[in-house]
Every structure is written in C-alpha cells, then in structure tokens.
C-alpha cells in the first residue's frame, strides 16, 4: 500500500492563456484582463498570507499586476505564468518599502455592515479557531518558509515550481516546506489531532 499523495505538478499554461499572452506581448492591453483574471484569487490568497490587512493584500496584488504588465514583454515563458506572478508577488512582499505608500484604510469595526453571506457561528467557530491559530503560526515563519508551504499545500506546486518562485533549488524548496510544516505542526498541536 503506497501512502504517498499524488505528486502535484508544475502549473501548466492553457491554450487560451498562451493566446492572451501572445496578444499581450504584441501590445494589446485589452488582453491583459482575460490573461490575468484566472490567477487573481490565487494571488490574493498568497498576498493574504503575507499581509493580514485586506487592503494591504489588495495593494500587493495590484502592485504585482502593475509590475507584471510592465514586465510582460520580457516574460519568456520559461516558467508558467502563475509561477512568474507568484515570484513577483513574493519579491514585492519581501520589499514592502517598494510599494507601500500611506496607511491602510481603517476598518469600520462595529459599524461594518456585511453584505455577504455569513456562515452560522456554531458550525464555523471551530474552523475559525483553527484558521486563527493557523494564521498565527504561519506568521511566525520566515517569508520563504511561509511561501513554500502555501504554494505546496494550497496551490499544489511541485518543488521545481516552488524553487522557481523562491529562486532556489528544488531541494532547498523541499527543506523550506518541511521546516515550515514542522514548525506549524508544533504550534498547532492539539488542533490537528484526530
């Protein structure tokens, strides 16, 4: 009985992505939206791993997109577009002074009236508790460890791809994931028990 998980792969470029990419690189700015839209949720998820404030996370995503658009002509397709986007985001997250300007918007706090569907508290409480602990534990990791674990667990990237994002070897990426996992598991303890 082989207990290993299915080995995830490198993110692949679809035909439509290649099409939009070519149009973008040929100078068609309108192609940028359909090219990047499928990656926005993933970019936001990674940005939120690096910035707890949702407005900062948004700004990080937006700055990533600005850089991506600006550098798209030099993108050679040697890695997947998503890997490249993550690489930009991680670089920016490591150098916040390059893109953070001003203060994030203040939350409305108690006056905030949500216009979105809210899950029932009794079912959600345990998940929220786990998520809070998880966020806390992830925040204590180094940027590289946090990114590596996120890309592995959430995006299912393989180590080549993680290495591509972090600009390191696949073996080093593996060690980042392993170390990150060990630290987070040690922090979460009973929250992960059956």
């Amino acid at each position: 009985m082989d207990l290993r998980v299915t080995e995830p792969g490198q993110p692949k470029s679809s035909d439509s992505e290649r099409h939009w990419l070519q149009r973008c690189q040929a100078g068609d700015a309108a192609a940028f939206q359909p090219l990047l839209r499928p990656h926005l949720a993933a970019l936001l998820a990674l940005a939120k791993r690096h910035c707890r404030d949702p407005h900062w996370a948004e700004d990080l995503v937006q700055e990533t997109l600005v850089r991506a658009f600006r550098n798209l002509p030099s993108f050679r397709g040697e890695s997947a577009l998503r890997t490249w986007l993550f690489r930009i985001l991680v670089r920016l997250a490591s150098e916040p002074e390059r893109w953070r300007r001003g203060k994030p918007a203040e939350s409305l706090g108690d006056l905030d009236v949500p216009d979105h569907f809210e899950l029932r508290a009794e079912h959600d409480a345990i998940a929220r508790e786990l998520q809070d602990r998880l966020d806390e534990a992830m925040e204590r990791l180094t940027l590289r460890q946090r990114t590596a674990l996120h890309l592995r667990a959430v995006e299912g990237f393989d180590y080549e791809a993680i290495g591509g994002v972090l600009a390191c070897t696949a073996v080093a990426a593996r060690m980042h994931v392993l170390e990150a996992r060990r630290k987070v598991m040690a922090r979460l303890k009973e929250h992960l028990e059956p």
Partner: peptide
C-alpha cells in the same frame, strides 16, 4: 500520527485560504 497531522495541516491550509479569499469581498466591501 505525524503523517495524519501533516495531512490535516495541508488540508486546513487549503481550506483556510479558500475561505479567506471567499470572505475578502465582504471585508473590503
């Protein structure tokens, strides 16, 4: 047990990221 916990961690991370992103529109209005 360690393997079980590690797998739970991976699953929890994936789920948490999904929930977090799904809630984002509500957070920023």
């Amino acid at each position: 047990s360690a393997l079980q916990r590690a797998r739970r961690l991976d699953a929890a991370l994936a789920t948490a990221a999904g929930i977090d992103v799904a809630r984002h529109p509500g957070q920023v209005g």
